[in-house]
């Protein structure tokens, strides 16, 4: 004790400071003394930066927490919330709405994405059935994500206009550009519910450290745990993809960043992963927003560019401990 508490407080402070800086920084610098309702620059803060920052924090936290929960559940440090197909399903839903040009109404795309996530989750639950088996769960997830991926590729190749194609490809890269309070209203309840469900898995994930037999003998109900994980991750990932597109690596990287501080116990990793995920995505999104590039660098691409080298470092470190 209590390195966890210290880390959580430090991450919270980091988020607070970054939010403040991020509200000021951007293509236009808005100092603190301009933060009054009658200043002409106030709408930039209230209507453009604020919702975007809130979304970055929410999506980052949900992805970080999902990643930590998935790694704990599968007992595999390389597990990622995208692994079980919900993000591909949500992306497919969004791509279908773009394909048919429904993106005109701002709420149609997220609604399609959420439907995609929901359908994928339902199929996953049907495939896994009442087995509670982690192997079936993983395989079903891999199958679903590859099927959804191939359907997405099909939609891209058959897109009616080059414009639709480019819209789909751009959307798939993931970003928080031009999000409004409507997106926050849509995503917040879903992400919050997902996070609450995942927060309940902590001690059960700890028990799973001892393997399935020992965990069951200690009173762990594998079906209940699987249900919490499936629904929790689906809500978090589905709502994240619906509002931000596919942003990879957050769920994979973040638990690894916090483990050196709080240890490997799965429940100890959950909260700091949520906070670190929020901070990571907030920093990354603030940077891509403030960078003086002609067209904004897509957040999804920025995260992938961070993720690749990170994976490499992870591999090298694992190789050293295995050797």
């Amino acid at each position: 004790m209590n390195r966890s508490l210290a880390l959580n407080l430090a991450l919270l402070a980091g988020i607070a400071v970054t939010v403040l800086l991020s509200l000021m920084a951007g293509k236009v610098w808005i100092p603190l003394d301009a933060w009054v309702a009658d200043d002409p620059r106030w709408p930039i803060i209230a209507e453009l930066r604020m919702p975007r920052i809130v979304l970055a924090v929410l999506v980052g936290a949900a992805l970080g927490l999902s990643g930590a929960a998935m790694q704990g559940y599968l007992r595999n440090p390389l597990a990622d919330p995208g692994l079980f197909g919900v993000s591909s399903g949500a992306a497919l839903g969004a791509v279908i709405s773009l394909y048919f040009g429904y993106a005109a109404s701002p709420l149609l795309l997220p609604a399609f994405a959420l439907t995609g996530a929901g359908i994928t989750m339902a199929i996953l639950a049907l495939l896994v059935g009442r087995s509670g088996s982690i192997i079936v769960f993983t395989l079903a997830g891999v199958i679903l994500s590859s099927v959804a991926g191939s359907m997405t590729a099909l939609a891209i190749s058959l897109a009616p206009t080059p414009f639709a194609t480019s819209q789909i490809v751009t959307w798939l890269m993931g970003a928080l550009t031009d999000r409004s309070w409507d997106d926050v209203t849509l995503a917040l309840p879903l992400l919050a519910l997902g996070c609450i469900l995942l927060a309940f898995t902590g001690r059960t994930l700890d028990a799973l450290t001892l393997g399935e037999s020992a965990a069951r003998s200690m009173g762990v109900d594998p079906l209940r745990l699987q249900l919490l994980i499936v629904v929790g991750v689906a809500l978090c990932v589905g709502a994240s993809v619906a509002t931000a597109g596919i942003i990879g690596f957050v769920g994979l990287i973040v638990p690894h960043l916090v483990r050196p501080f709080v240890g490997n116990r799965p429940s100890a990793v959950l909260l700091p992963s949520a906070l670190a995920g929020a901070l990571l995505l907030l920093v990354a999104d603030s940077v891509v927003r403030a960078l003086p590039t002609v067209s904004e660098l897509r957040l999804g691409i920025a995260m992938s560019m961070l993720g690749g080298p990170f994976f490499l470092i992870l591999l090298l470190r694992m190789r050293r401990t295995l050797a």
Binding site: L208, G211, S217, N264
Partner: peptide, 15 residues
């Protein structure tokens, strides 16, 4: 009832 399973694994390196 406490069970000590065969070849019990430990999946995370905790103390």
């Amino acid at each position: 009832i406490g069970l000590l399973p065969q070849g019990a694994d430990v999946h995370w390196d905790v103390d």
